[in-house]
Design a protein around this nucleic acid. Structure first.
Lengths: 138, 138
DNA sequence: AGTTTAAACGCAACATTGTTGCAAATGTAG
DNA sequence: CTACATTTGCAACAATGTTGCGTTTAAACT
């Protein structure tokens, strides 16, 4: 699906800036911070535009936030079409490789049920794993 | 154990500032960000001092970092004496209550083994759960 | 195609979070 | 009590993110 179609399907206007930013996500399999994004964007976009674009992508279910150990919030494409506005089915685990320092989604693995102590109610959970990825572990 | 003893046991000098900050952690069961800490410290300490104190507490195994969904890093006391310099046995889950907006450690619950895809090597993992805590869930 | 209109954009300014260098103050060992 | 390394506070800086506002632009509608 082209960037244009993705934007339209999520009810967003198609603009050159959005096409650029979405393209960077499509071409990179790992999660991106604002910092990463800026480095990958040849053309300089205003910082505000980038942040606002990230926010609208997130709110329309195109990307989701990932909090890895770093101080920056990273973003990655949502897959499977299960994400929508304000309801991210962000149920997969995230993995950061300590060698290449990339963070990505592990859609494949199942996350076992985690039991809370009595009295607690669970709304969402996130599992974050650090180690060495399959590319670096060779 | 008094703040003075805790500091001595971890090889840190005893100073009024450190006593104050450690006291705030002892009196609060939940994790604290710099922001929280500043609000709880009656006496105004310099921002630099607080950050440096947090860093030395962390490096000596008194507190550990917690990354909850917020943009700020939070800290909580290490329990069980299993943490030491640069080797935090941070194997428990963390929980943030959506009602009282407090984050704390769930030392009690066991975290099931999470299997990675072939080729990946796991070094550490963290489990973060959001929901309603036992106090608010009534 | 031309007009309209709400959305997107860029700029300036600001807020928060965290760090670095340096000189002065202070805790602790001897 | 002295000496010395550590801690502290100040000033300055850097990174990350937000807000307000006037201008531009995508796209819907004649």
């Amino acid at each position: 699906m082209s960037p244009k179609d993705i934007l339209k399907n999520h009810g967003l206007k198609f603009t050159p800036n959005r096409e650029l930013i979405l393209g960077v996500f499509i071409n990179n399999k790992h999660a991106l911070s604002y910092n990463n994004l800026e480095a990958l964007l040849a053309k300089k976009l205003d910082r505000v535009t980038v942040y606002r674009t990230l926010k609208s992508f997130e709110e329309s279910g195109i990307i989701h936030q990932i909090h890895d150990g770093s101080s920056q919030i990273k973003y990655a494409l949502c897959h499977g079409g299960t994400c929508s506005s304000h309801q991210h089915s962000d149920s997969h685990a995230h993995f950061r490789c300590e060698e290449c320092d990339k963070t990505f989604c592990l859609e494949e693995i199942a996350i076992p049920e985690i039991k809370l102590p009595a009295g607690y109610k669970k709304e969402s959970q996130s599992v974050f794993i650090q180690g060495v990825c399959e590319v670096c572990n060779q």
